[in-house]
Write a protein that binds this DNA or RNA. Structure first.
Lengths: 196, 196
DNA sequence: ACCGAGCCCTAACGTTGTTAGGGTGGCGGT
DNA sequence: ACCGCCACCCTAACAACGTTAGGGCTCGGT
């Protein structure tokens, strides 16, 4: 049995190493280099070994995307240090597009069609929850009753996603995308603050 | 020489037929079925013929994306029938996400990484111009001086893109995305209308 | 000491984008 | 009217991809 746990530990370890290798390849050489054989070579195994840990490439990619969402979550949570809620909003917007700009390939995978709707939903839930909390705190602080917090949250999330995407796929450039995201969020909040 | 023009006409014709076949396959069977061999079969040729008309697959895909942007342009321009500017704005938002919902695979290709930044910029320019015109007309109608129309335009374009994407890649559903896009645009405009 | 079970590799299959090379048919010049 | 050339089009192939099959090796338990 003791050997059994060791084996299990080793299994989990190589699984982890595969994920790390995938992230390394993805970030440094882009999605076109993200190949089963390439990853296997990086962890010093032959290609079929990967299939002992992941059903197929999409399952592995999903894991990479989930890792990406965890990274993003950490960055977004770090904005909690800012006590002023409005400033924190601006910081969150900036942080979101900064993440997309600093990890373009990972970001691409996170939003790519390789991971399906439900899995992405699950992976992004925690990060979205941060935004939702912040949004309810904001509405409380400004005595604004948002008709539907979840709707507002989706709107902001979609807006950030859209502008950040413009930043990394169009020629807009990420610094401009950062400013635009901030302005968009500021304008949205201002719009919500004024009474109907 | 007369035969020369006929040949040229035939060349252009098969090129066009290839594009049409590509669109047909893309819309009906999705991006995974969009294969050189598949398209060639559809136009009753062998695969290498495609390379007499397009340098590589990406060049063909770019053409499909450009066609998609022309279709979208036509739909967006149709909103000009609405005389009320605010209503037209709402209609444009709805039309945008409707397009994404009705042509998900085409929309995916239009915004996918297969077409590079500059080419997309060029293909989307006309459609964006419609939005920009509408936005300046709106600002004039409401006596609002937008700090930078182009910035506002990019913000709206990015927002629509983001929310529409949420509609077709997440489980949000397109009808919800439509409502959200309208609400987002309405809120943005309200935010711009209130004086600083 | 043997035997079984897990680990890991080589080899292969089917499919993709893409290129090379040959055959064929019609057009222009003599 | 014939001949040569050119453009068109096909078959065959290559490299790389995801993925699967099958066999050998090693290690632990009886």
């Amino acid at each position: 049995m003791s050997t059994g746990t060791r084996r299990a530990r080793e299994r989990a370890s190589t699984r982890e190493r595969i994920i790390e290798a995938g992230l390394r390849v993805l970030e440094s050489e882009g999605i076109s280099a993200l190949t089963i054989r390439r990853i296997a070579t990086d962890v010093e195994y032959a290609a079929p070994i990967v299939y002992q840990h992941f059903a197929n490439k999409d399952a592995l990619v999903l894991e990479l995307a989930a890792h990406g969402y965890r990274m993003m979550l950490a960055e977004l949570e770090q904005t909690a240090q800012e006590p002023d809620i409005d400033r924190r909003m601006m910081q969150l917007a900036l942080e979101y597009v900064r993440f997309a700009g600093e990890h373009p390939h990972l970001y691409q995978v996170m939003n790519g069609p390789a991971v399906d709707a439900e899995d992405r939903r699950r992976a992004a839930a925690a990060a979205i929850a941060v935004l939702e909390e912040l949004l309810t705190a904001w509405s409380a602080a400004h005595d604004v009753v948002l008709a539907d917090v979840e709707e507002a949250c989706d709107i902001v999330w979609g807006t950030l996603y859209g502008i950040a995407s413009l930043g990394y796929l169009d020629t807009i450039g990420n610094e401009r995308a950062g400013r635009l995201a901030q302005q968009a969020l500021r304008t949205l909040l201002r719009g919500w603050r004024t009474d109907l």
